[in-house]
Design a protein around this nucleic acid. Structure first.
Lengths: 138, 138
DNA sequence: CTCAAAATATAGCCCAAGCTATATTTATTA
DNA sequence: TAATAAATATAGCTTGGGCTATATTTTGAG
């Protein structure tokens, strides 16, 4: 009996854990985007694109550094570590797949892009694989 | 130009708002379930099913009361207001639809039930309608 | 009916994530 | 190059949602 069905408490705990990394995923993806677009990720731009005040972005970047996902020096731009860059790639790919899946089942594009922002963080690898298989069908 | 495409900041802000009501939705649905199953919703049972400590459940119930979703008297069970019961019904229906949609696109049942717990809170009415239409197809 | 057990409430702590206001540093321009 | 503007950091506050420890109330057994 090593795999009894997960209890409600297990499911809720899992959703809480996913939520706690969601913000880190968003920041890492955004930093990767900014570097790709403009060559650097400045705190002011991160704050602007995330829709938060600048000190909020500074604080979250500090958390990214604690978690080994980013580096930065005072008054300078933010960079991703290897782990951060790898996470950004995975998050970006997953985001695209979620949007495509939503559109494939009939969700209008704008709603798909809005909803994907919250949904993506809760899509497990198993679900992601299923989404990809579904999108490849004829 | 009343409907320019939502900015990144808009999308993130929207996801943050959805997240802030997610916990209330879960509690309200659970309280409805407990009342249906056992005739009453006790704080200890809520805490157990949510997988949190009892004072955490007490505090969240207080927030439900502030938001007009539940009522309770000291040392007594928790009840839903009309608004709370209506929300519980909507949440329960949406949860079922999300699980069914995930299974319909090929997600294994267990993964579908786990992932739905986090996904459901970010599914807009437009997406929900699309899911229902998709599930009704031949 | 009393008293012990169970349930609930309260106090007080932590951390994350938001904010405003202000200090500090870097960059630009006159 | 000195002064100003822009960017970043820091301080300190709020709220939400966790926790443990403990007080209080209700319930149920003898």
């Amino acid at each position: 009996m090593t795999d009894a069905p997960p209890s409600d408490a297990d499911r809720f705990a899992r959703a809480r854990r996913k939520q706690s990394v969601a913000l880190l995923e968003d920041y890492v993806e955004l930093i990767g985007d900014l570097i790709a677009e403009t060559g650097e990720a400045r705190v002011a731009d991160i704050a602007d694109r995330m829709g938060v005040a600048q000190p909020t972005a500074t604080k979250t970047v500090a958390r990214l550094k604690r978690e080994g996902l980013a580096t930065s020096r005072p008054y300078r731009g933010v960079f991703l570590t290897e782990a951060g860059a790898a996470l950004a790639d995975r998050v970006r790919a997953r985001h695209r797949t979620v949007v495509a899946l939503l559109i494939a089942v009939g969700v209008p594009q704008e709603a798909a892009e809005l909803d994907a922002e919250g949904i993506e963080h809760h899509v497990s690898d198993r679900s992601l694989a299923a989404f990809e298989a579904f999108l490849k069908r004829d």
